[in-house]
């Protein structure tokens, strides 16, 4: 039965690769033949070529560094902050009751409406972007932390009392490992949302960074550079997400979750 499932998984993977590959191939042909004008979409091979050229140019490094460091800081802040806040909300029922409706509505608010405000408060520069991305990503971590801690089975806590664990030991040795799968999906979301927050912010309002470079290339009808950078961002984000996903899968397989 397990073997059968693995085989089915494999088959789906192959079909998926084939579908994606033929989509790229079809686009390539459509562009080469001229069905799709180069002013709209350029051929995938041209995108890759442009990407290599762009990465070799000197000016891209600074933008890259700015974007990635902003993402890294936002990621760190949102994961740590989100965990701590989620933990406090889990332990203090009053706060939790009070904040629940806002947590539920949080992702309904278009955050970018508040972006100008952040610029006014934090000035132009990387700070408002980092704050924006952190605020955007943190709530996912808060919600995941609360969900994880809520779902720790009561019987495990009883077991902790049977072994007379102190509160800290109980948290460290029972609650956190039991909540780990939820925490990890929170981390996964925080990673994705940090990228989205930073790049979207750069795109709309910044004067530097990868997001801005894409918008700038669009404004200047520089399609090769634009597609190269889009491809680059999507590749980086997808790699990052896949790495987290793979780690999660490994953990889940072991725990049979």
């Amino acid at each position: 039965m397990k073997v059968g499932k693995a085989k089915a998984d494999n088959r789906a993977t192959w079909i998926r690769v084939a579908v994606l590959a033929s989509a790229v191939g079809a686009l390539e042909i459509a562009c080469r033949v001229g069905w799709v004008p180069a002013t709209m979409v350029i051929a995938p091979s041209a995108m890759v070529k442009a990407l290599i050229e762009t990465l070799q140019s000197d000016d891209i490094g600074a933008h890259l560094q700015q974007t990635l460091s902003a993402v890294a800081i936002a990621m760190g802040l949102s994961i740590v902050g989100g965990f701590l806040i989620g933990f406090v909300l889990h332990w203090v029922p009053f706060l939790r009751r009070a904040f629940n409706p806002f947590l539920a509505a949080y992702y309904a608010i278009p955050h970018f409406a508040f972006y100008p405000l952040l610029i006014v408060i934090f000035g132009l520069g990387p700070a408002p972007l980092i704050v924006l991305a952190t605020l955007f990503a943190m709530v996912a971590m808060i919600v995941a932390t609360m969900a994880g801690l809520d779902r720790v089975p009561r019987v495990l806590l009883k077991t902790a009392r049977m072994h007379r664990l102190s509160l800290l030991e109980e948290i460290w040795r029972i609650r956190l490992p039991a909540a780990a799968p939820h925490l990890l999906s929170g981390v996964k979301l925080a990673v994705a949302y940090s990228f989205i927050g930073v790049i979207a912010g750069e795109f709309i309002l910044s004067t530097s960074g990868i997001g801005h470079e894409i918008a700038y290339a669009y404004d200047n009808f520089d399609n090769p550079r634009m597609y190269a950078l889009i491809l680059f961002v999507l590749a980086i984000v997808t790699c990052f997400n896949m790495a987290v996903y793979a780690y999660e899968r490994r953990l889940a397989r072991r725990r049979g979750a």
Partner: peptide
């Protein structure tokens, strides 16, 4: 989970 804003120019 990708920043879809990058696709907006497309």
């Amino acid at each position: 989970s990708i920043p879809k804003i990058t696709l907006y120019p497309v």
